[in-house]
């Protein structure tokens, strides 16, 4: 487990943002340690994009404070941020090269540096031939590559991606994941929002789960997953279906029994009092055990569980 306590690159404290008739963010705090990949999760409309826009200084919070490292956020700190919005788009009529230089310069990169760095990236992804083409002549996938390069061209220390994997084809998604890890290894911090829990498990070190304008879960992803363990074990074993079902039904709480290739996988939820070793030693005399492991919940399950709980609590409050 990585230790991020070194320094927080970004911190938002007690943010509140109200739109005309609803509260978009309610006393929300997020702290992003430097050098980590941070996931921002939550159902649609939870307030993720609002938070991201506040970090990018696109909108201002009604209440709360933003910090960059250990000082208050200044408006020119946005030049340390690279932002890839959820809805992506470029000037369709502009030439790719010209547009890239323009957007890099808006982020404070000199023309000379912009050209040098763009050359490097365009070579890396074999995009040199696109330089003088108009954006509208490129395919969607190509445009996304251009957009990604533009996002990181000013070598920001904090990268913010809003739903980066939506709309990307598998090849670009893989490329993007690889680049995210690369950037992190080079010292950048990445904050991204996503619905894709697979990518969260794959990439994220820490997460915040926002639901209905509030942060309802926050922390190191491995610790969260451990915390949500339900003392469930999965045993892979050979045997007759009927016998297996009868055996487990009588003695244990059989959650699931499914066939996997030439054997079965049985999921058993144990009571707190029961030792996992005793489960194994009870099974071994009767069946041939192939595998045995504790089930660590997937982020997907945790997400659904936490959000549903939060909604239930809210309903019972009302």
């Amino acid at each position: 487990m990585l230790n991020f306590k070194l320094m927080e690159i970004f911190k938002a404290l007690n943010i509140e943002k109200r739109f005309s008739n609803h509260l978009a963010l309610d006393n929300l705090s997020v702290a992003v340690p430097e050098g980590c990949i941070y996931g921002l999760l939550g159902p649609n409309g939870a307030g993720k994009t609002t938070l991201i826009r506040i970090i990018n200084q696109i909108t201002a919070p009604d209440k709360g404070e933003l910090f960059f490292y250990d000082r208050k956020f200044r408006s020119d700190d946005v030049f340390q941020i690279g932002y890839l919005p959820e809805e992506r788009g470029l000037y369709k009529k502009m030439k790719v090269g010209e547009l890239s230089v323009y957007l890099a310069r808006l982020k404070g990169v000199s023309k000379h540096d912009a050209l040098k760095r763009l050359k490097h990236w365009f070579e890396k992804y074999e995009m040199q031939a696109w330089w003088n083409k108009k954006v509208e002549e490129l395919s969607k996938g190509m445009q996304q590559k251009v957009q990604f390069i533009i996002t990181i061209i000013h070598q920001p220390r904090l990268l913010i991606f809003d739903e980066p994997f939506s709309g990307f084809d598998p090849i670009n998604t893989t490329m993007l994941k690889k680049e995210i890890l690369n950037l992190r290894n080079q010292g950048a911090t990445i904050l991204f929002s996503t619905h894709d829990m697979g990518s969260v498990e794959e990439l994220c070190d820490r997460i915040t789960l926002i639901n209905q304008s509030k942060s309802i879960l926050e922390g190191d992803i491995n610790e969260i997953r451990k915390k949500y363990k339900s003392n469930t074990y999965e045993i892979g074993l050979d045997g007759d279906v009927k016998k297996l079902t009868e055996f487990f039904r009588d003695k244990y709480n059989l959650v699931e029994l499914k066939r996997a290739d030439d054997h079965f996988l049985a999921r058993i939820a144990l009571d707190k009092s029961v030792d996992d070793n005793s489960l194994l030693s009870n099974v071994i005399p009767y069946f041939h055990v192939i595998s045995f492991n504790e089930v660590i919940p997937r982020m997907n399950e945790i997400f659904i569980k936490v959000v549903q709980n939060a909604q239930k609590t809210k309903q019972s409050d009302n």
Binding site: I58, E87, G108
Partner: peptide, 12 residues
């Protein structure tokens, strides 16, 4: 409609 505006207002 291009949505580029969000990128630009994150810089200016």
């Amino acid at each position: 409609t291009n949505r580029i505006v969000e990128i630009i207002v994150s810089s200016v």
